[in-house]
Amino acid sequence: MTSALPESVAGTWHRAGTRTGESKVLLVSITAETTVYEPAETASALAALGSSDIPVRSLFTVDMRFSPSLSSVGVSPTSVLSKAAPKARSQFVDLVEDDGLTVEDTRETLSFERPDGTEGRWYVLDASYPLSPALETDRESLAAEANVAIWPTDDAYGMAGGTLPLEAPDSLDALEVDPERDRETIASLIRSVDPDKSSE
């Protein structure tokens, strides 16, 4: 089961893959299923960049399962957000770096509020995206940006975000670099995705 994409992006993005990771904090086991999406219209152009299993322009949602549940061990997700958020950021960094991106630094750490009033943490990360040696360019990588946000739900956490290119090689005009547009798409996902509504 994966979180359903909100209507604002569901029609133009499709699933690019799913990754599952497990970790443990004290007595609680955490299973995180990350589903990555890519823009359908430019999927082939993004694939031509190569060298990474995550597209340079992507969206992602994360479904987290806790065993035993947080409520059963007397923990409120809201009360431990300050500890959970940095750990979630670190796990996201590990995931994208395993898939080929390089995360260089955390540019910004922001507090944000979802439409329902839930407060969360938002991280903006400077990254570089490796280019395929097959491309006709003398560059080895592109400057990129990753955004990841986490917020408490009733008994767990919601998590979503995306990556975007900040530049493009001369040989790939189809990449259509537009950071502000991409950031707004990611923000729309973070504001509206509902971890309690899932799709197969």
Rank of each mutant, 00 (worst) to 15 (best):
7 E>P: 12
9 V>M: 09
196 D>F: 04
195 P>N: 00
19 R>N: 15
65 R>D: 13
175 L>W: 01
103 V>A: 10
8 S>D: 08
88 A>H: 07
21 G>A: 06
78 T>R: 15
32 A>Y: 00
69 S>V: 06
145 E>F: 02
8 S>I: 12
32 A>C: 01
83 K>H: 10
29 S>Y: 08
22 E>H: 06
127 A>P: 15
28 V>L: 04
2 T>S: 14
163 T>E: 00
18 T>C: 06
94 D>S: 08
43 A>S: 13
122 W>Q: 11
27 L>V: 14
139 R>F: 01
72 S>W: 00
196 D>V: 07
45 A>W: 02
61 T>F: 02
78 T>S: 15
38 E>A: 14
138 D>N: 06
19 R>E: 15
17 G>D: 01
102 T>P: 12
61 T>H: 05
1 M>N: 11
60 F>D: 05
25 V>G: 02
117 G>Y: 03
183 R>M: 13
50 G>L: 00
27 L>Y: 02
22 E>L: 04
1 M>C: 11
120 G>D: 07
133 P>D: 08
192 S>C: 11
46 L>E: 04
23 S>C: 03
88 A>L: 07
97 E>S: 05
29 S>F: 07
30 I>R: 08
110 L>R: 15
62 V>D: 05
107 R>W: 03
186 I>G: 03
146 A>N: 13
129 Y>P: 14
23 S>W: 00
6 P>H: 04
143 A>P: 12
29 S>A: 14
80 V>K: 05
83 K>S: 15
33 E>A: 13
163 T>I: 03
32 A>G: 03
